[in-house]
Computed example of a mutant assay.
Amino acid sequence: MRWHPKGYGGQRRDLDQVKRDGWHDEGVLAVSVDDHRLTWPERELVRQLGDRLYGQRPDCGEAANG
C-alpha cells in the first residue's frame, strides 16, 4: 500500500541542490545575505542588490548598516 500519490515519493533534494539547479537551468540566483561562504564585500554586494531590486529589508535600518 502506498501512502503518497504516484510521482511524489523518493528523496527530496537538499536546499543547496535546488539553488544550484535553479542557477544552472534558469539563471536564477538565490543567495542569503548571511551566507558564511561569502566574504564581507560579497555579502554587502548581495545586500545592495536586494535593496535596489526589492527595497530595504524591514529589519535593517540605516543605523544598522553604518
Rank of each mutant, 00 (worst) to 15 (best):
Met1Tyr: 01
Met1Ala: 14
Arg2Cys: 04
His4Gln: 15
Pro5Cys: 03
Pro5Arg: 11
Lys6Thr: 03
Gly7Gln: 09
Gly7Lys: 14
Gly9Cys: 00
Gly9Met: 03
Gly9Glu: 07
Gly9Ile: 08
Gly9Pro: 00
Gly10Ile: 00
Gln11Ile: 01
Gln11Asp: 08
Arg12Asn: 02
Arg13Thr: 03
Arg13Pro: 02
Asp14Tyr: 10
Asp14Ser: 04
Asp14Glu: 14
Leu15Pro: 02
Leu15Asp: 09
Leu15Ala: 14
Asp16Cys: 13
Asp16Phe: 15
Asp16Ser: 11
Asp16Glu: 03
Gln17Thr: 13
Val18Asn: 07
Val18Arg: 06
Val18Tyr: 12
Val18Glu: 02
Lys19Pro: 01
Arg20Thr: 11
Arg20His: 10
Arg20Asp: 11
Asp21Ile: 12
Asp21Ala: 04
Asp21Thr: 03
Gly22Met: 14
Trp23Thr: 12
Trp23Pro: 03
His24Trp: 01
His24Asn: 10
His24Glu: 13
Gly27Thr: 08
Gly27Lys: 07
Val28Gln: 04
Val28Gly: 07
Val28His: 13
Val28Arg: 01
Leu29Thr: 06
Ala30Pro: 04
Val31Tyr: 05
Val31Ala: 09
Ser32Thr: 09
Val33Tyr: 02
Val33Glu: 05
Asp34Trp: 14
Asp34His: 15
Asp35Trp: 05
Asp35Thr: 09
Leu38His: 03
Leu38Glu: 02
Pro41Val: 15
Glu42Lys: 01
Glu42Asp: 12
Arg43Phe: 10
Arg43Gln: 06
Glu44Pro: 00
Leu45His: 00
Leu45Tyr: 01
Leu45Cys: 06
Leu45Arg: 06
Leu45Ala: 05
Val46Thr: 00
Val46Ser: 08
Val46Arg: 03
Arg47Ile: 12
Gln48Thr: 02
Gln48Leu: 13
Leu49Cys: 10
Leu49Pro: 07
Gly50Asp: 00
Arg52Asn: 03
Arg52Thr: 07
Gly55Asn: 05
Gly55Trp: 04
Gln56Thr: 06
Arg57Trp: 05
Arg57His: 13
Pro58Tyr: 09
Pro58Val: 08
Gly61Asn: 10
Glu62Tyr: 02
Ala63Gly: 10
Ala63Pro: 00
Ala64Glu: 11
Ala64Ile: 05
